[in-house]
Nucleic acid binder design. Structure first.
Length: 891
RNA sequence: GGGCGGGUAGCUCAGUUGGGAGAGCACCGGCCUUACAAGCCGGGGGUCACAGGUUCAAGCCCUGUUCCGCCUACCA
């Protein structure tokens, strides 16, 4: 590509993105090396649901991962970003069932085997959607290694884990109260229940004593469960009931005698202090029932309809039954009253159906022993959670962890590797399908029909994806992973469980760092949801503004510990930034020769002030970007590079070197500056690449003197010629002086409304010889950037009359403009400036006259304030002088 | 009920051992200056939620109040 081929005037992302993504994949630039001398760096992707489509959360999550992976590659690491999806048991089954229903079919008609076949077919056809969307985002995953939680390898890991935990006594099976979703027809883990406050009623029901000596009133929010009551409980300390003789009540509607029991659990201050006990339909009642050996009567079936045990109510829907029960109680005069009552009701996290606590035989993981070590790892800093504030949440949950119900009554998932011998009822748990019963030799072995919770398999993700249970080179190179990037919403679901499983099975933590990022909300801070209609589709944003602008927006707003409020307007702003870079490159390419070009900056010395300055600033920007990416401060990293590119490189450097590039200063100077320009652009592209991979790659290929992909570039601070961009104190302070003078002149121009096209004559006075020399030396830059017709520097002496003035540190600027300046305006401007300075000056004086401050503040602070006071006083004095002068002339 | 986070410019937010209140957008004024009007130059704007306290010094540390958001939980 020759430099005479100008870039288009505006950056058009669409074609560029497609082209380079294909190129990267084709060149194998995303591939990790199994064995390498390089430092290993690995991230496993939080596997999106195979049913999923890319939303803002995914976009943020994966953009951050991609930034880190691309950055680490530039730093020379051997990077593995492991991609994949999870099988999302309930969600996927729901989707496929819906599809079947639309075809007038259902899974029971198909049968289990056929149904699972259908799901696989669906997965093949539609399951890759989100992977394609991740590619649009620029995700540099090692796609050849893509995994799926239902893959053969991962399934093997699941079986092995299940069997081992069972043998260790950490998995057990039993009848317990679990959360039951009638719509999904399965048990759910406690975590999968979403609590929501709803306006319900508190029903007060009279339970007559069996001996006719009176009654006790109990309160309930779910009257239909009374049909399954097996006791009424009171607190043993409750004086209201200390004198009752009755030991039993008659359960209304059922006409059944049930005992009155005493249990400390009962809260005396709630209602009447009488509690109905339904062990089959309430977790607390279940525990009370266990303590008192009460029978558990299941009146609500797994289908949501009342069971045989519900007597005359049999077959009614649970909510319908509630109304009828209440109605009947009222008629029989057993309903004391109904009070409105707000309470929390559990809903299924997949389908929002109201959850019923239900007695059921399920499989559980005994979590406490696993949680202990998972807590230790964080306590000992083996795994660091960032930001730290999430430690508390992590410990809070781990400390109160309860056993994890892992069986699901659905078909799509890992079928539990347990068999029951029909002959002797022995339960066999094994990785391979057993042929005969080891106890009785029976051949009729029936496999457990339940499948495992999807999170059970995702808990193994960091090592199952790398080939475990085999000892693979991949595991050796990349486990433990370097960092996990995730949203806090799955801290418990996933992160905590990976910690438990990783430590238990690998004997080592699954990740060294866990970076917890925020949620993406809409521009008003509301959670995005389909029902609210405030969802912004990342893909439409990408279509409209380009991937680079979108990614940069996400990074720029990814401040630790705060949610991101996303609006398209923000993205638009960063599209301007992409375009700015594009045009800066366009400008640079107009001046960088494309042949016989020696790119070493160091061979051209001495360099001009702008050259030395921009190299110093580039070094600073490089350092800042690295520091902030190393500590997951994505917004600060993005901010630093943005500031550098726009306000230092474009606003000052490119403007300052124009005369040189136009050849006004001779070929030698031009050659030197061109090298610096090239160098800064090259390094800038590398710095920006992790954030904006596409536009940087596009420019990289247009820039002479670069080879291959920018992905293969070396991070600026790691290059052999990194010394060129070291901090240069002299250049920075000289440039500050020059910038100060220019800004002073521009300020007058702006405030006085002097036409930009009018070239001005400017005189600068300074007492400091060094300052005078520096200014003199760089007067061409000042003349150019401030648009001057003449410029001179001298010692303080005669003040030009009729001039506007500005004060910078160490120098006074005079803009003699007889006939041009407006005296009234200049007076006003100076007065305003004096006001400002006076205010600051007063603050400093106050401090300096405070003896305590002088005595107790550190010397360096006092000195700083003294200096400040001195400069301000001087500035004020000069301003005052100028004001007096103006007023004098005005007269 | 328990826990966490937040209240800083009109808006969205930075502000990391306590010592100069900042950015982006929006707004106002001036510019088509041959990279970019998706741009350039200049400018205005804040009792850092409120009340106390510690300190020479508080946006930052402590206490209390208040408002908002989230997580978590078995008061029927």
């Amino acid at each position: 590509m020759s430099s005479t081929d100008l870039l288009d005037k505006a950056y058009e992302p669409y074609d560029v993105e497609k082209r380079w993504y294909d190129f990267w994949e084709k060149e194998g630039l995303f591939a990790a090396t199994e064995k390498s001398e390089q430092k290993g760096y690995s991230i496993v992707i939080p596997p999106p649901n195979v049913t999923g489509v890319l939303h803002m959360g995914h976009a943020l999550n994966n953009t951050l991962q991609d930034i880190l992976c691309r950055y680490r590659r530039l730093r020379g690491d051997n990077v593995l970003w492991m991609p994949g999806t999870d099988h999302a048991g309930i969600a996927t089954q729901n989707v496929v069932e819906k599809k079947l229903a639309s075809e007038g079919n259902d899974r029971h008609q198909l049968g289990r085997e056929k149904f699972i076949e259908t799901v696989w077919k669906w997965r093949k056809e539609y399951g890759g959607q989100i992977i394609h969307q991740l590619k649009r985002l620029g995700a540099s995953c090692d796609w050849n290694r893509e995994r799926f939680t239902m893959d053969e390898g991962l399934s093997r890991a699941v079986r092995k884990v299940f069997v081992q935990l069972y043998n260790e006594g950490l998995i057990y099976r039993g009848n317990y109260i679990i959360n039951w979703c009638h719509r999904c027809h399965t048990a759910l883990a406690d975590l999968e229940v979403e609590h929501e406050e709803i306006d319900g009623n508190l029903y007060h029901i009279r339970y007559p004593f069996a001996d006719g000596s009176g009654e006790i009133i109990v309160a309930t929010t779910r009257p239909e469960t009374m049909l399954g009551d097996t006791a009424v409980a009171i607190n043993p300390d409750d004086e209201r009931y200390s004198n009752i003789g009755a030991t039993e009540v008659i359960l209304p509607l059922m006409n059944k005698k049930i005992p009155i029991i005493k249990d400390k659990y009962v809260d005396m201050s709630f209602g009447t202090g009488g509690l109905k006990v339904t062990p089959a339909h309430d977790p607390n009642d279940f525990e009370i029932g266990t303590r008192h050996n009460l029978p558990a009567v299941k009146v609500i079936g797994d289908d949501g309809l009342m069971t045989d045990e519900a007597g005359e109510f049999k077959g009614l829907d649970r909510f319908e039954c509630r109304e009828i029960v209440v109605d009947k109680l009222r008629k029989e005069g057993l309903l004391e009253k109904i009070e409105p009552h707000k309470h929390n009701v559990g809903h299924c996290y997949r389908c929002k159906t109201i959850i019923e606590p239900n007695l059921s035989k399920q499989w559980f993981v005994s979590a406490k022993p696993l949680a202990e070590k998972a807590m230790d790892a964080v306590r000992n800093n083996e795994t660091k959670i960032i930001p730290e504030t999430w430690n508390k949440t992590y410990f809070e949950w781990m400390n109160n962890i309860r056993d994890w119900c892992i069986s699901r009554q659905i078909w799509w998932g890992h079928q539990i590797p347990a068999w029951t011998c029909e002959t002797c009822q022995k339960v066999i748990v094994a990785t391979n399908t057993p042929e005969t019963c080891p106890d009785c030799g029976g051949k009729n072995l029936i496999q457990e029909t339940d499948v495992l919770d999807t999170w059970f398999s995702s808990a193994l993700w960091p090592f199952s994806t790398m080939g475990w249970p085999d000892e693979t080179p991949l595991l050796k190179t990349f486990y433990p992973t370097s960092v996990l990037i995730t949203g806090f919403d799955i801290l418990f679901f996933w992160v905590a469980r990976m910690m438990m499983m990783g430590i238990h099975f690998m004997g080592d933590i699954p990740f060294k760092d866990v970076y917890v990022h925020a949620l993406v909300r809409d521009e008003h801070g509301k959670k995005m949801s389909k029902s609210t209609g405030n969802v912004i589709d990342p893909l439409s944003v990408i279509e409209e503004y380009g991937t680079d602008a979108f990614r940069f927006t996400l990074a720029a707003f990814a401040a630790q510990g705060r949610d991101i409020k996303m609006s398209e307007k923000r993205v638009e702003g960063y599209r301007h930034f992409v375009n700015k870079l594009w045009n800066a490159a366009r400008f640079a390419l107009m001046h960088i020769p494309n042949s016989n070009f020696e790119f070493q900056v160091s061979s051209f010395k001495p360099l001009s002030l702008p050259d030395r300055w921009i190299l110093s600033r580039l070094g600073k920007a490089t350092e800042t970007v690295a520091e902030n990416l190393d500590t997951y401060k994505f917004n600060d990293a993005a901010g630093a590079v943005y500031q550098f590119v726009w306000h230092e490189f474009c606003d000052w450097y490119l403007e300052a070197i124009k005369p040189v590039l136009y050849g006004n200063e001779g070929q030698e100077k031009k050659d030197a500056t061109t090298r610096v320009l090239w160098r800064v652009l090259r390094d800038t592209l590398v710095l920006l690449h992790p954030f904006m991979p596409f536009v940087t790659e596009e420019i990289w290929h247009k820039l002479p003197g670069t080879e291959g992909s920018v992905m293969k570039a070396v991070f600026p601070s790691d290059t052999p010629d990194a010394a060129d961009v070291a901090y240069n104190a002299e250049a920075e302070s000289e440039m500050e002086l020059v910038i100060g003078i220019i800004t002073g002149i521009r300020n007058i121009r702006g405030e006085m409304n002097i036409s930009p096209s009018l070239a001005l004559e400017v005189l600068v006075q300074s007492q400091d010889k060094k300052i005078r020399e520096t200014i003199q030396q760089h007067q061409d830059i000042i003349t150019h950037l401030a648009r001057l017709s003449s410029f001179s520097v001298e010692q303080p002496g005669e003040r030009p009359k009729a001039s506007a003035t500005a004060i910078t540190e160490g120098a006074t600027i005079f803009l003699p403009l007889e006939g041009i300046i407006d005296f009234a305006k200049e007076t006003e401007r100076l007065e305003k400036e004096i006001d400002k300075v006076t205010k600051e000056l007063t603050g400093a004086s106050k401090k300096l006259s405070n003896e305590d401050f002088l005595a107790k503040a550190p010397e360096s602070v006092v000195e700083k304030v003294r200096e400040k006071h001195e400069t301000l006083a001087e500035k004020r004095q000069k301003l005052q002088l100028n004001l007096d002068k103006i007023k004098e002339i005005k007269k």
